[in-house]
Write a protein that binds this DNA or RNA. Structure first.
Length: 884
RNA sequence: GGGAGCGUAGCUCAGCGGGAGAGCACUGCAUUGACAUUGCAGGGGUCACUGGUUCAAUCCCAGUCGUUCCCACCA
């Protein structure tokens, strides 16, 4: 017996364990079936589940469960990411609370500490994914710093280095003065701010009283100026090109050069050059052989390359002091407000400094080529397609990828330096020494390994094949690569998707996935991004606790329309929890009425119209769900199943069949029980990918003899002629008549409980047939006492027009004639509006000649129908008026 | 500066070249047999604005306004 209410927490736990122990998640059991593979976007190993994960993994689980039910050999490859900077920051914060830094511990002890933290918190996110219902193959769980995956990282690094696609270079990088590491362009967040623009006079050397005014947003960088640039065509400055300025405060003589970069429209037209601290100036400096003077240390404080008074100062303090000193020298001209973008580190939140240093880079431009063509040729499809443009845009303008990080948690770069800076990149230290031996021709040297680690995204880029065993050529790799679809948020399109494309093509020679489905962000109900500081974070686990995992999953699915953010309101979750309750109660109804699944039930077999009708509707819903899944239209899946289950099955079918179930026609009862059970069962199948827990529970409870789990059963693919036009016509008629009577009764305040007599007038033969066949149904659902033909209409009765028939509730003296008159007049006004519209359209010759014939025909039918109904309602109105 | 999305009922959003939809909220009625986490019925919208294409535009095109986001090294 089913409990009176659905208890998610016990059911969810029970079935998840059952699925796992039944091996339902394990790949490879269906050796002959087509494989279907998804790799999970690996969450941060020390993180916890947020709404974005909940959405992302719900969508994956829907595809995975559906594919499994459709007979595929499914692999959902799970795992976690070491998330270098993020994880290291967490552990460093813990250390800070103990008053320590990582340097107090030293590298090895610090690494142990992070591994401990990983061991402690690493299970959180995976257990939360289980609570969500994610049917990952946990036996294959991987971590980006596993031995095998680390081997893959080294192998890729070494091979790319040997091909010249990874190189070490001295360039300006984005330096994070708080985290003390370089970061990639993608990790820099540009923020719009109102800054200032200061105008300074630089004396021209040897020309007393002549000044060149430059404008700058960063006064402190003037200490590193090594030139001034003007545009070659700028007549104001032509005569100064080739001369020098004396850099105030510092006293350095710096050249005035002509370069196209200088924009006559910007600032004063003369721009100071700071090649060691500005990306543009760096390029100009290269072109003109300007000196590179680095004035910052790793904390972004001024170093010994500046006048003594400034040494050790913070960059912000230095700015103030520079402006003051320039002012006191009479070289400060003015200051203006200036809207500008300032670079911030996305993790640290501090202003990033361009800093000149040696780092490792990937030649992304070369790797991007094949990744661009793969999408152009459709070997990988991006859904929704508009994201392809974004992908192309970025890939075609891709910059060298800075992959070295000055942190400890991550994959240490397999590069060893010799005594004079020679670089040996090898898989192991042993091989590095061997290479060094060869290089130094037997001379014994000491090698030191590069202390830096790789950008986290370097290892994530290998995820689709490193998790499957690469570089070994394993059967699993052979079978499941390339994967089928990748599901991810647009926020990591560049970070991750683009890089997987590059690495997959470079090392596997094949795209990593055929389809990339990009979903939106989950926001709060007002469209605000969820953040700790705003305090508007909704915790998925909290919602699961309160409403059940299924309710949360259904909500996310129903809102996952392509190309739009998901705005999550708790009222929605509550609404879909109610949907789960509805299903539960429908199942209880089945149980109470002994609607048990019948083995080998043939959906073409029922004879009763109501049964043939619901089977037809079910087929439509099932086809709709399948189409929606294949098109990644997740919200449509939810929508079509919601409306079929609640609106069609519960609200109509279960009500329509009650008379049969309670009647004494044994054959009809048996057929209806079997049909009800079968449709219920199909509903459970169709809903299972979205709401796996409650459907599994009901599937098992509704038939104690079931040998297998719903998770492993077969997706409904209903063939052939299950849609019966005759059954549809009659049942749709019943629905129409019942609805019309109910509406009229409600509007005219006929007491809901009152059983009233109904007469019908002017019915066609077909309608009379429908009445004869379905009289009991209409009487029951519309609360009628009787239903008889009449040859005239009683005076002052309530009249309801459906199609050609006038239904009459002879309530003379009971109903309010004025109200009835008003009701009919309103109906007439509506009909006349329609008629006018149709007539105007059909009176337009261009419409009749140019529009498709079937459209014209439809409009004609509508006009005829409206006209006929108008006449009948008019007659009804006259009768009422006669009675007044 | 470049690009993209969005603007439809009070709120959150589907839809989309030929009769404006859902959920929630709101109003009225209904409680002894699946379900009040319910049922029945109802109110509510110049589909942002202006032009254009078309027999026909909420839908396609252009522009405007508003809004969100992405990319970009501009003193």
């Amino acid at each position: 017996m089913l409990d009176k209410t659905y208890q998610p927490e016990t059911v969810e736990k029970k079935h998840y364990e059952q699925w796992e122990s039944a091996g339902a998640f394990t790949c490879g059991a269906r050796g002959n079936a087509d494989p279907y593979t998804i790799v999970i976007p690996p969450p941060n190993v020390t993180g916890s589940l947020h709404m974005g994960h909940a959405l992302n993994n719900t969508l994956q689980d829907i595809l995975i469960r559906c594919a499994r039910m459709r007979g595929r050999d499914v692999l959902w490859q799970p795992g976690t990411d070491h998330a270098g900077i993020a994880t290291q920051m967490v552990v460093e914060r813990q250390l800070a609370e103990e008053g320590k830094t990582r340097h107090d511990l030293g590298r090895d002890a610090f690494m142990d500490r992070v591994w401990d933290w990983k061991a402690e918190s690493g299970g959180t996110i995976t257990s939360q994914l289980r609570r969500l219902g994610a049917s990952c193959d946990w036996s294959r769980e991987r971590f980006t710093m596993d031995e095998g995956l680390s081997l893959a990282v080294r192998k890729v690094f070494v091979e790319l280095f040997k091909k010249g696609l990874i190189y070490r270079d001295k360039r300006l990088v984005n330096w994070d003065p708080k985290l003390h590491t370089a970061i990639s362009d993608l990790e820099v967040e540009q923020r719009e701010e109102t800054g200032k623009l200061w105008y300074f006079r630089y004396p021209v050397e040897g020309e007393e009283g002549t000044f060149l005014t430059v404008a700058t947003t960063r006064p402190e960088t003037m200490l590193a100026d090594t030139g001034v640039a003007v545009h070659p065509e700028d007549d104001r400055f032509k005569h100064l090109v080739g001369k020098n300025c004396t850099l105030p405060i510092v006293g350095r003589i710096i050249p005035i050069v002509a370069d196209d970069y200088a924009n006559p429209e910007k600032g004063t037209g003369a721009v100071k050059m700071t090649p060691a601290h500005d990306f543009n100036d760096f390029e100009v400096g290269r072109r003109h052989n300007l000196k590179m003077v680095n004035i910052l240390d790793k904390d972004a404080c001024l170093n010994d390359n500046v006048p003594e008074a400034y040494r050790g100062m913070d960059r912000h303090d230095a700015r103030k002091k520079i402006v003051e000193e320039m002012d006191s020298l009479g070289l400060f001209e003015k200051v203006e407000d200036n809207p500008m973008t300032i670079p911030y580190g996305d993790r640290s939140g501090v202003v990033i400094e361009p800093w000149l240093m040696d780092q490792w880079f990937v030649d992304a431009r070369t790797l991007a080529g094949p990744a661009i063509s793969a999408v152009e040729q459709g070997r990988t499809r991006i859904v929704p397609q508009q994201w392809e443009n974004t992908y192309y845009e970025w890939m075609r303008n891709i910059q060298p990828w800075c992959i070295s990080r000055q942190i400890w948690w991550g994959h240490q770069i397999p590069a060893w330096f010799g005594p004079d800076g020679e670089i040996f990149v090898e898989m192991t230290e042993q091989e590095a020494y061997a290479a060094a031996d060869k290089f130094f021709e037997g001379e014994k040297v000491e090698l030191t390994r590069d202390p830096d680690v790789l950008d986290t995204w370097f290892s994530s880029a290998l995820w689709p094949f490193s998790t499957l065993g690469w570089p070994e050529q394993t059967p699993v790799l052979e079978r499941y690569y390339p994967t089928d679809v990748l599901i991810t948020g647009f926020d990591i399109l560049f970070f991750w998707v683009a890089r997987m494309m590059m690495m997959g093509l470079a090392f596997m020679g094949e795209v990593p996935f055929h389809t990339v489905y990009i979903h939106a962000l989950v926001r709060d109900e007002h469209g605000q991004k969820m953040s700790k500081s705003k305090g508007n974070i909704i915790d998925p686990l909290d919602l699961i606790d309160r409403f059940g995992a299924d309710a949360l999953r259904f909500t996310l699915t129903a809102q996952a329309a392509q190309g739009r953010d998901v705005k999550l309101a708790e009222s929605r979750v509550e609404g879909y929890r109610n949907f789960c309750t509805k299903i539960w109660n429908a199942a209880r109804f089945c149980e109470m009425n002994e609607c048990r699944p019948v083995d080998g039930f043939d959906p073409a077999s029922p004879r009763l119209a109501v049964n043939r009708w619901i089977i037809g509707k079910l087929k439509e819903a099932a086809d709709g769900a399948t189409e929606a899944i294949d098109a990644y239209r997740f919200n449509d899946i939810a929508d079509v199943l919601y409306h079929f289950t609640w609106g069609t099955f519960c609200d109509w079918y279960l009500e329509l069949t009650k008379p049969v179930l309670m009647g004494d026609d044994e054959a009809a009862r048996t057929e209806t029980r079997a049909t009800t059970a079968w449709v219920m069962d199909q509903i459970l199948h169709l809903l299972h990918p979205v709401i796996p827990f409650i459907t599994e529970e009901l599937y098992q409870q509704l038939d104690a003899n079931r040998a297998s789990n719903l998770i492993l059963s077969t997706w409904p693919e209903l063939g052939g002629n299950l849609i019966d036009d005759n059954a549809t016509a009659r049942m749709d008629w019943v629905v129409r008549v019942v609805t019309a009577i109910r509406a009229a009764r409600a509007e005219m305040n006929v007491p809901a409980g009152a059983r009233v007599a109904l007469q019908y007038f002017g019915a066609s033969d077909q309608t009379r047939g429908f009445v004869d066949d379905h009289r009991d149904l209409v009487m029951r659902l519309a609360r009628l006492e009787s239903m008889d033909a009449a040859d005239k209409i009683a005076k002052g009765a309530l009249q309801i027009i459906v199609d050609e028939t006038t239904f009459v509730l002879p309530l003379s003296g009971v109903i309010d004639l004025d109200a009835e008159q008003a009701r009919l007049q309103k109906e007439i006004a509506r009909l006349e509006g329609e008629i006018e519209k149709f007539e105007k359209k059909l009176g337009n010759e261009k419409f009749v000649t140019k529009a498709p014939a079937e459209v014209v025909e439809t409009e004609r039918e509508r006009l005829n129908e409206a006209t006929a109904t108008r006449a009948r309602v008019g007659a009804a109105l006259e009768r009422i008026q006669a009675a007044m």
